[in-house]
Design a protein around this nucleic acid. Sequence first.
RNA 1: GCCCCCAUCGUCUAGAGGCCUAGGACACCUCCCUUUCACGGAGGCGACACCGGUUCGAAUCCGGUUGGGGGUACCA
Length: 549
Amino acid sequence: MDGQSTRESPVSVRVRIAPSPTGNLHIGTARTAIYNYLFARHHGGKLILRIEDTDRERSEARYTRSILEGFAWLGVEFDEGPVYQSDRQSRYREVVEQLVATGHAYHCYTSEAELNDLRDHQRARGLAPRYDNRHRDLSEADRARFEAEGRTPVIRFKIEEPHEVQWEDLVRGALVWNTSDLGGDMVIARADRSPLYNLAVVIDDIDMAISHVIRGEDHIGNTPKQILLYEALGAAVPAFGHVPLIFSPEGRKLSKREGATAVVDFERMGYLAEAMVNYLALMSWAPAEGKELFSLDEAAASFDIGRVSHSPARFDWDKLSWMNGQYLNALPIDELTDRLLPFLLAAGYEIRPQDREWLERLAALAGRGLSRLSEIGGVSRYLFSREVSFQAEALAILRQPNVSAILKAFKSAVEQLDGQLSESFEAQVQGASLVLATDDSGVEPFKRLFHEEVAPRAVLAKEAPPEQLQILQSILTALHQKAAEQLPQLLSTAAKEIGLKKGALMKPLRCALTGDVHGPDLVESMILLHRRDRLHNRLEVALALNEPV
RNA sequence: GCCCCCAUCGUCUAGAGGCCUAGGACACCUCCCUUUCACGGAGGCGACACCGGUUCGAAUCCGGUUGGGGGUACCA
């Protein structure tokens, strides 16, 4: 309960996160890392990354990379490391020899078959499976005999029992473990002298001067074994804190079967790192102030490991999405645009460098109110696609008899506007004596520039003086602005012409222009569509739909 | 089987004996805002697993039951 107050010691805080590279960075590992990070920052200590790659069968370099990238994306920074266990083999061997020399460990020749046999018998009698320490006090003669048989020994660490091991857990309070429940003398090194997990961890934590071991609840049972090892090695025992696990929405252990469990999966799905770390931290911990939305820095200021929950939290997609939406909406437009860009590209949309301003408008229009970045592809499809795909509901509306007049009125208003813009463009080009390129495509410069959004440079002749580019650009900007101002007016103009209220035009126009009855703001959508020359064509298509068959 | 951990609305949690008629957030429902959707705003629904102690008084302390989870390796 009072883990924080009783544990404040003058030693400098050094914590670590020690993933094994047998898969992509798991969100459970990420969450533990976040708590370590917050703890370190709160106490002005250091966070160290250690890669536990002693299991050579399952460890892969690409996973190490993925873990590093995952942490970098989340914003969990390390002060030291990564330290690789695979680089420390000789050190482990040295300690194994030391443990044998000091009588804390011994050679065990028991074969796998003998062990299985032993455990089968124990299980049959309803006993806990355990090693019976049969080779703890082997005579030289016995050893020689086993060696002659060709047996290669593992190293076992002596566990005295009965005896109570206790520690004040940083999150759970006082915990006691009887050594009789530890399964007998434990193997600390394989026949080839490579260390097993519990030994390697302890040696590393001692050598790295780790002061607080904060890890998942699944390690509670390892703690007494490790404390015994610390004592045998004459090292100071660090403080331990066991944080709860993350469960799937169904309340089971979060496994790969549940779908997304790796940090990269969430990145691909369009969650923001800020939202991810916030949500992960909040799953089993809440600041005393009760605040729910916070950055890692803010959390570090008030983090208290004693306030970490004792029970596992279920992963809640709804809450994550809500939180992601909160962060998404708080993003400045240019940053939102940057983050949306990869997802727009992933959706297969053509994006050119000169589209930046248009994209920022798109981000402001359709990027707000999303809960995931990846949704942008779907909600903005109508702005990119050449053809609109009509929803049944939209189709039904477009087939109503009165919409023809609406579409026609709006179409002619747009045509009028285009005429004005074009004229204005011609006049300004002449006025500024711009030297335009000879038109090989047959498309007039205004249209290429305004509707096709080609780079202004492409419209100017090669021999045009360089300052003309700027002039052309400012002409273009002014035209864009004028169009953006005029388009909303067009709605009223068209409405007046056919004697309807402006609101009555909205739904049919939305259906014609977007193919859907719902969607982002229609007026702004019109501006974006107009720039890409999608207005005319869509109105014509919709009109054709309205014709009686 | 054995050992250990855990237990407040559907979910995440606040709560460290009277402040609790149990607070907040997500989700859900209603209404408002609005050309639609979303956002936003205002409400609503909704929990102390059970049983027994301790106490003047228990969501809070103790014991048991039940339920969930973890561990039980020459994996980490």
